[in-house]
Design a protein around this nucleic acid. Sequence first.
DNA 1: ACACACTGTTTATGAAATAAACAGAAGTAG
DNA 2: CTACTTCTGTTTATTTCATAAACAGTGTGT
Lengths: 310, 310
Amino acid sequence: MSDAEATELPRGIALAWGVAANPQRGPKREMSVERIVDAAVELADADGIGAVSMAAVAARLGFTPMSLYRYVSAKEDLLLLMQEQAMGIPPESHREPDGWRDRLRILFEEQVLLYLRHPWMLSLPITGSPITPNSSAWLDASLAVLEETPLNAEERLAAALAVTGHARWCGIVQAGYTEQARGTGLSPEEIAVREAALYDRVIEAEEFPALRHAIDQAVFASTADPFRFGVERILDGVSSYIDGLDAGGHRDRPQEWLEIDPAELAGDRRVKDAQKAVREAEKALRAARKLERQALKDAHERLARPRKIG
Amino acid sequence: MSDAEATELPRGIALAWGVAANPQRGPKREMSVERIVDAAVELADADGIGAVSMAAVAARLGFTPMSLYRYVSAKEDLLLLMQEQAMGIPPESHREPDGWRDRLRILFEEQVLLYLRHPWMLSLPITGSPITPNSSAWLDASLAVLEETPLNAEERLAAALAVTGHARWCGIVQAGYTEQARGTGLSPEEIAVREAALYDRVIEAEEFPALRHAIDQAVFASTADPFRFGVERILDGVSSYIDGLDAGGHRDRPQEWLEIDPAELAGDRRVKDAQKAVREAEKALRAARKLERQALKDAHERLARPRKIG
DNA sequence: ACACACTGTTTATGAAATAAACAGAAGTAG
DNA sequence: CTACTTCTGTTTATTTCATAAACAGTGTGT
């Protein structure tokens, strides 16, 4: 009983699996869940997730805001259905190449394209893994691709997760530019240029030497996609792990989740004050270091100058 | 002129760099930006980002909502400052081990811990890279660690980005559980168990064979952290790339960003309708496949049974 | 002294989600 | 065929936010 209750499908997820009660009596329906979700997705694609209010969706369909609640129990459910619909199922293209590596790369690229098409998906809260048909299909596709490898089930999931996460991360960063572009009316490229200029202005070699070095190498002006490099490294890593297994190497020992000390979570006043003190000390340290570097640099210059003049 | 204007610091970012005008006249200030941000972070840590309203922050400090606007120009700026403050600077621990690999792993773990401490950071919108002192410090640390490798500047950035992204992804997934736990009053472990049960109930072998297989291998009941496996693969990948360089191999050619056809973005009606038709066809295909598999399975059983009886 | 800059407060506005009560439509049972 | 029931979309009202605008009190520089 408590078991059945415990595993009962949450409202929104049930809707996503198409468990919809079709009523027999009463006036004919003028809308449908599908039309509502379509309208919402169109709004979000065009003007971002902020443009999706119950009122706006209803207006787009020519109805009053409250009417939507006959179809969608709450906005949260609508958002879930939007995700599900926008995600779709993985295209067949990933079956074309031979070998897990090329297939997984295609799945990566398709996911990135998904996020480029629907950047708003990335600003929705993630509530665990959404157990919906389409997300399941994507996960299934990744796992299926990896079934030709000697990885065990857990490793396959971890590898699939890593690639998915990287695609998402790529999407997040790009969506950031898209979003800013929408706000400012500039093109994403202009935003990137402006951002590079800001970095250039604000980052001093004394404080952030490695970052400054990167800026001087014009990495932020680069038009290359760092995420492409990233996936290749992930795929390399999986590949070399597989090579290790094939060569009779042992598996990685499963590792525990990272955890923070529960005492920290308890919100103890003394702990918090101590942490704050640490933060301030770190800040002071950083400032002192910066001054030290500056002083060293100046001293070097003073020592160097006479030689130059003489 | 337009150059100076173009690279002017956005309000919030200026605040983060500590460009604060201290007024000479008027009544003494009773609050400070710092106290406001502290209060907001405490609220968010305790009850999630949803608990952070201007009114709630003000109430926690014993003031009226509008008073905050004397210190923080808008909620958006407050959120930026919260991020900056919660992030802090990377701890010194990452300098202890020798070798980029162990150091980068520590930076990964520290970032994950950060997100465990402040899960709300992950539900804030990302607007490009926030060019603030503390985020710069983290990026600088990653880049500095990689300076001992033969990677070039762009590759270093890409590698740092990959690790950061993976930490973030790890945080996102864990924060999902934390968030759900807050909502339902259950422990994150119970949520995970419930989720595994849901998967088990809903995923059929006919529709998602690889996923079903994973479920049967109890991967969702596992207590191991798939992200630990993930970072190791990323580190492996970077490592083997470096080995390749050392062995005189050539670099990956820089690759372009993924893009979607602008025609798609234009929101053309015909294109959209066509896409919708594709979606529906895919759905039908999926259903047909499922039936096919089911039929095959049934047929097999029918063929197998007589032999059993006879 | 006194004007003015600055403080925190009060009041008001508009967007948003959604609860609750409603009037009318369309089946179904008598 | 009538009356009941169920279901539709609408209306109205409440609550929660961010934030604009006007305000009254408080120090400081001139």
